[in-house]
Write a protein that binds this DNA or RNA. Structure first.
Lengths: 245, 245
DNA sequence: TCTATTATACCGACCGGCGGTCTATTATCA
DNA sequence: TGATAATAGACCGCCGGTCGGTATAATAGA
């Protein structure tokens, strides 16, 4: 095989890209290292030059995800014009907006991310994301408590709950699609909208705010996300399905 | 090797027992099937006579866990003397009590159950347990809503939150010990007690109850659980640590 | 009650493929 | 030109899983 030398950073990113694609389509366990290096067109030796193990590759991937996600909300975090409630709502809105905008693309991601074989991958990403976001949320809540907007004795705990709600929402969405034949779609949408409203009120009350202060989903948000999926061109199901193990 | 025939049900339970021990000590991934069958003293063929795959073994184990857990609260569920709030609190109390009683033993379990290599195992157990408990919780909450004790428009959602809080508490406990040197213990205990109080109030408010209605941890509960661990005889750390892979 | 037969529990050699190691070779650049 | 980073790929031990076969238990026929 001809030897191809690339800039190390490029090669590393490339490896992460191929790994991401394969992990998402086949799952972390089922996608073998050989698959990854075959896709990337490199040798075993080259791979182990960049990562000490398959596990480390997963870790790096999770970190990249988290880094990108955090970068996406940096403007909100830094915006001096926002008060704590505004900042919190802006953060929630941003993640909501991000979901809608990338809906078609994101569905492929979400749908695969919640398949059981992707548990490990998802958990790592979530862990890394939590580690990034938690301090941000804690700080916002703490400021809110200081200036009297929020009332709670445990900002860290509330931050945890916010993130729990976030992943729980994903979970509900995933379940909706997992079992979801077209007919169930309406039911799923309604269940999800109810759930989002519940989380809003729950957060309002946990933070000692009047009901309606926290906005997670604007009207129609859920439907927008859920139907964006169906609207996408749909690559006519007949995707290759090798791999049995 | 001599051929030993046992009653199938006994053999199956035995297999689950050995698998449980090995999965917990080494993790689902790291504990190999060969380890399990060696511990159980049977052949590959015998194993595959009982379970179609290693995965199925995990599934069966999770189901057994969930079944046992559900059986433990059956009396509360069936008690006609309890009103919805009482039943919910009794359920929470039961799980609390169970934790204290089995504290020494449970620590070994919890501590291992939250090690990262046990993610998969834990998630399966949690999934199975949720599937069992969710309907029970939903029914209690629905009754509470009917008789006016609780006020919420989404009993399923609230049930989910209750269970989320449950696993989140475990998570916090696990983290406390994971990083916890003896000195940090006090801090961990306080953090956990604060968290438990937060969850209580959160549930009160989500359910439209006066603060203080829901009781997750009675005073000293957290400390009791956390210190029971240290009090236990502690098998002098030098446990064998084969396995490197 | 003593077989013949069948169903079930069990055995263990074997397989492809896995993650990971190692030595050798080639490109890069001070 | 020599050192070092980057790449190649044969190789290793072990993994989960398969398969043809054997011993035991259960059942039926005489």
């Amino acid at each position: 095989m001809p030897r191809i030398v690339k800039h190390p950073e490029l090669r590393r990113e490339e490896l992460l890209d191929y790994a991401q694609a394969l992990f998402l389509t086949h799952g972390y366990d089922k996608a073998s290292l050989n698959d990854v290096i075959a896709a990337a067109g490199i040798s075993k030796g080259a791979f182990y030059h960049y990562f000490p193990s398959k596990e480390a590759l997963l870790e790096a991937l999770a970190e990249r995800f988290a880094r990108q996600a955090l970068a996406g909300v940096q403007d909100i975090v830094a915006d001096p014009a926002l008060d704590p409630l505004g900042r919190l709502n802006a953060l929630l809105a941003k993640s909501r907006q991000a979901k809608i905008e990338t809906a078609a693309e994101a569905w492929a991601l979400f749908e695969t991310l919640f398949r059981p074989e992707n548990l490990v991958l998802f958990h790592r990403i979530n862990l890394a994301a939590s580690a990034s976001f938690s301090p941000v949320l804690v700080e916002i809540i703490r400021q809110g408590v200081e200036d009297g907007t929020f009332r709670t004795f445990d900002p860290e705990g509330v931050a945890d709950i916010v993130m729990q709600f976030g992943t729980a929402t994903h979970d509900v969405i995933a379940k909706a699609f997992a079992g979801g034949r077209d007919a169930d779609m309406e039911i799923a949408i309604e269940a999800l909208e109810r759930r989002v409203r519940l989380y809003e009120i729950a957060l309002d009350r946990i933070l000692g705010l009047p009901d309606g202060s926290i906005r997670i989903g604007e009207p129609g948000y859920v439907r927008a996300v859920m139907t964006a999926h169906r609207a996408s061109p749909s690559p006519s199901g007949a995707a290759a399905s090798r791999k049995s193990r």
